[in-house]
Each structure stands twice: as structure tokens, then as C-alpha cells.
Design a protein around this nucleic acid. Sequence first.
DNA 1: ATTATATTAGTAAAAATTATCAATAAGGAG
DNA 2: CTCCTTATTGATAATTTTTACTAATATAAT
Lengths: 142, 142
Amino acid sequence: MEFDCKNTRKTRQRQVVLETLKETTAHPTADELYEEVREKMPRVSLGTVYRNLEILSTCGEIIKLDLGEGKKRFDARMDPHHHFRCTQCGRIYDLPFIPVEGIMQEAARMSHFKVTGIQIGFEGVCDACLGNEKKNTKEVMQ
Amino acid sequence: MEFDCKNTRKTRQRQVVLETLKETTAHPTADELYEEVREKMPRVSLGTVYRNLEILSTCGEIIKLDLGEGKKRFDARMDPHHHFRCTQCGRIYDLPFIPVEGIMQEAARMSHFKVTGIQIGFEGVCDACLGNEKKNTKEVMQ
DNA sequence: ATTATATTAGTAAAAATTATCAATAAGGAG
DNA sequence: CTCCTTATTGATAATTTTTACTAATATAAT
């Protein structure tokens, strides 16, 4: 039942998926990453990208993000940090880490539940959109 | 382009959707709420439930939640509070509000972005699952 | 080299959500 | 109340995102 990360094999596909994700800071979706991986491995399948992203995140090599867009995004940056989504251009930015242990402890204290994780997503308007309102979504996306 | 909440009509379907959501604290998905609404209005369509949940949340009458499950949930409780998802039984619990202005200001200060919103979702193990580990998912869901 | 099995490509299917459209009904004007 | 505009509905199709299936292949241990 439990997935065993020690029994995974170092396949070429999995290496390319991880390596390609590490090359970007754009927090791509599975489909977006698939397009990039295809440039290196034209015969790779979308299912393989999905499967490897799932395995890599389960095994703690990458992070699976859900910023409330109805699809998942992935991030190979593993040091503690937060994410910010610009509501105008849709870009996802990294934000430096802000300690959240206090909030988690407070939540645990009030609920008596065992709080093991916290998902924080910031949203607002990014520098580019603040300074240049006339750029539309298409022009600044990705 | 911008949706105008003042031009909406008070339809029977919209009223029943809102009223039904207000009757529960289970944070139902659109599909789950559809089943409940059908008991009062057997001929209502799933699309109507989706559409009204979208309109009601856009107009600030309910809250749309995304706790990273790959589907949206809805909440008619409008006072400030947080959400906790039990990773064992899947239930969503309300948690009292914990002030988050400090974190938002810190994020804005570090990024120089305009931070307008923050999504926080806690996860862990709830009281019921902590105290009674042998209950499985099926038994305790909903 | 042999072997066990994790993984793959390709495809189908599932799940969640959105779009389409003729028919209906809300709500304002007269 | 009646007429009229148009927001909304039910029914269904289509889209989007993700997962499942399967025979063939590749990985890594023996």
C-alpha cells in the first residue's frame, strides 16, 4: 500500500524530468513540463511525466504546489520558501521563507489536533504588473 | 468582461443552493452539494449548481476553498476562520481565526509586491482519528 | 548473461469543470 | 396586470486535468 522510495529505479525519463524542472523557476504544471521534456526526449509520454512528478514529490525530491487554480504545479527548489501568485499576469513567484511554526502551534493548541503541515499561498499584484498596468495577460505570461 | 453582481436575479435555484450550503459544515464539493440540492429540487442540473456556486463566491456570499485535493469545496461560513484537513479521514474542519496580517505585511515588505490575499490550509490528524485509529476512511467520511 | 520487476509509451478512461443553446422565468417598464 | 428584455435554467456536449491499463522495455541485482 505504502509507496517505497527505495525501490525506485533511476530511469532516463525520471532524470530528465527532474533535471528539466530544476532548470526553471516558473513552477510549471505537468503539461507545461511535458512540453519542455519533449524537446529533449520527443517520445516521452505525458503519463510518464505525471507519474514521475508524483513519485519525485512523494519521495521528497520536488514539491507539489496547489495555488487554487484547479491544477497542480511543481517546484524543484527545496529550501523553505513561500509562493505568490499575481492575480493579473498569473505568474508564480518565490518568496523568502517566513517562519510559520507559531501559527501551526497556535492551530494545534486551539484544535487539539495534530498539525503536521501548513499550506500558504500569497496572492496580489506583482512588481511588473504594478509598474506597467498596460501589459496584458498574454504579453507577460510565462 | 467584469461580472456584475448587481445584475443577478434571485432565482429559486440560487436560493436553494445557498440555503443548502448554509445547512452544512461539511465543506461540500460542487457534486456533493448537487446531491443535497437534488433532494429539494429533483430537476436541478449539475451545471446550475456549479454556476451558482461560482456566482455566489464571486459576489462574496460564500467562500470557495481549495485544499489541494484537485477539486474545489465551498463554505457558507463567512466570518474569518481557517481550515484543517485530516489526512486520515479526509474531513475538513473549521479552525478559529488566527491573525495573519503580520505574515502578509512581511511578505509584502520582502517582495515589494502588493499582497491582497493569503490562503492558509492546515493539515494533520484530527481528534477522531487520533483517538480511534482503527476507524477507516469509509466509516468516518462525511 | 539471466532474471525479476519497476517503468515506459500509447491509449483509454475517469473526474472535475466549463461551454453551448433553445426554452424558461425574473423583474422592471408601461 | 401585461409586455418585454435578458439573466438563468436544464440538458448535454466538450474541455481540462489526472489516473488507469497493458504489453513491451529497461533497470539493477544475482
